[in-house]
């Protein structure tokens, strides 16, 4: 499996990334993929909740909320 030094947690508000892989083979990984967090998709950090967690992302044309622990499962490469 390809690995990247970055995960979704490393994106700052307004920054974009491209998904490289979702780590693990459990049902959490399956749910993340089902929701469209597929390798190759572009993903943008939209904003964080008042207490810093969870984070809102834009992916596949819609908004999804992920906790930091879940976002850390998604490896990305940063994009300008």
């Amino acid at each position: 499996m390809s690995s990247s030094p970055w995960t979704l947690c490393d994106l700052k508000p307004g920054e974009c990334g491209r998904i490289v892989s979702v780590q693990g083979t459990d049902s959490l990984a399956a749910r993340l993929l089902e929701m469209g967090l597929l390798p190759g998709e572009e993903i943008e950090h939209i904003g964080t909740a008042p207490m810093g967690d969870p984070i809102e992302f834009s992916v596949y044309g819609y908004r999804i909320s992920l906790r930091r622990d879940e976002a850390a499962r998604v490896q990305i490469e940063k994009q300008p």
Binding site: P54, Y62, R63, S65, R67, D69, E70
Partner: peptide, 11 residues
Amino acid sequence: EPSTFIMELAS
């Protein structure tokens, strides 16, 4: 174990 929070934020 901790839970998850994967949720769609519809427009």
